[in-house]
Write a protein that binds this DNA or RNA. Structure first.
Length: 313
DNA sequence: AAACGGACCAACCGCTCACAG
DNA sequence: ACTGTGAGCGGTTGGTCCGTT
């Protein structure tokens, strides 16, 4: 007898989450906190398995998620942590606040791994590849000057010329790789400063040139809920917006969001989980009723989640 | 303009672990 | 000690986007 996925037991939805589902889950978790995931779908009125809800919350809806491009510091830290921890993404993500294991894993597989290979470093062992080039770049993108005697050209930060010393040929690909990793502001435009973080300006700011799929995000730094239009939204924007809205009363966005998230988790309302054991179906009714009573958060978030594509397939 | 291919990322699957009964 | 259940984790897949031909 093989295992069955949670969606096989009942007719449960799979695939991408709709804004409506996101809203239900977000409202439920912010109200009652994280408890027994297996009863979340029932209580929140979702046709999903608890596992799917958990993943959606952790990887997407959580208000303390950072999103946006990885900074050079984060990149270095991932490489360094991977060297000691291996593919233990959850442990690695524990060292990077606001980043999920899934996000780091994807970043590693899609970008960092290739970058290391091109730098002549085995991404598994973090040691130089046997056939690696003579010029080994450090994780921060700078050349390892310990080997500089063997390098045909001197290292010059603004006018670097790189040679494969076997062929003594100019290697444009290698050069572009170097620039990409060493010039985070210019070429990549993905450098995220502490200042950016503090002002929550990373995602959605068209000036930030984020190429991580948040191009349709609104500029949250200048966001005005009154002028908020449907066109500002994408399916990947909702958590950021909720985060913003949740914290819009405070000038210190990040700390307020963190406190709110913390309060959320320790909310006395989490007693719902005990309550559910006895009065599950009855409470579901009550919960639906409560959703109709509006608060600023529900009002704004349902406004947000209503938008976007049709996910009803 | 259409077809194609690669990159990226969200989400699923299946396994392991922890814990309660 | 054993068993069942739920949570957590890592590998993998499939859809979408975007650049190239």
């Amino acid at each position: 007898m093989g295992r069955h996925s949670c969606t096989e037991k009942e007719k449960l939805r799979k695939g991408l989450w709709s804004p409506d589902e996101d809203e239900k889950l977000y409202n439920f978790i912010t109200r009652f906190g994280v408890g027994c995931w297996s009863s979340v779908p029932k209580l929140a009125g979702l046709q999903r398995c608890g596992k799917s809800c958990r993943l959606r919350w952790i990887n997407y809806l959580r208000p303390d998620l950072k999103r946006g491009m990885f900074s050079q510091e984060e990149e270095d830290m991932i490489i360094s942590l991977h060297e000691t921890l291996g593919n233990r993404w959850a442990q690695i993500s524990a060292h990077l606040p606001g980043r999920t294991d899934n996000e780091i894993k994807n970043f590693w597989n899609s970008s960092l791994k290739k970058k290391l290979v091109k730098q002549g470093i085995d991404p598994n062992t973090h040691k130089p590849l046997p056939e690696s080039r003579d010029l080994i770049l450090q994780p921060n993108g700078l050349p390892n000057l310990a080997n500089s005697d063997e390098i045909g050209q001197e290292f010059c930060p603004n006018n670097v010329i790189c040679y494969n010393s076997e062929q003594k040929e100019y290697d444009p690909l290698f050069l572009s790789e170097f620039q990409e990793s060493s010039d985070p502001i210019g070429y990549h435009s993905n450098f995220v400063t502490d200042h950016d973080h503090q002002n929550n300006q990373i995602a959605g700011n068209p000036n930030s040139n984020s190429n991580y799929g948040f191009n349709s995000m609104p500029d949250l730094a200048n966001f005005n809920p009154g002028n908020f239009m449907d066109t500002h939204l994408s399916d990947s924007s909702t958590s950021r917006i909720c985060s913003y809205l949740s914290s819009s009363h405070s000038s210190n966005v990040n700390s307020h969001t963190a406190i709110q998230a913390n309060n959320m988790m320790t909310s006395p309302e989490t007693s719902l989980w005990d309550f559910d054991k006895k009065f599950g179906s009855m409470f579901q009714f009550q919960l639906k009723d409560e959703e109709n009573s509006s608060s600023w958060q529900e009002g704004t978030s349902s406004y947000i989640f209503k938008n976007s594509k049709d996910f009803s397939n």
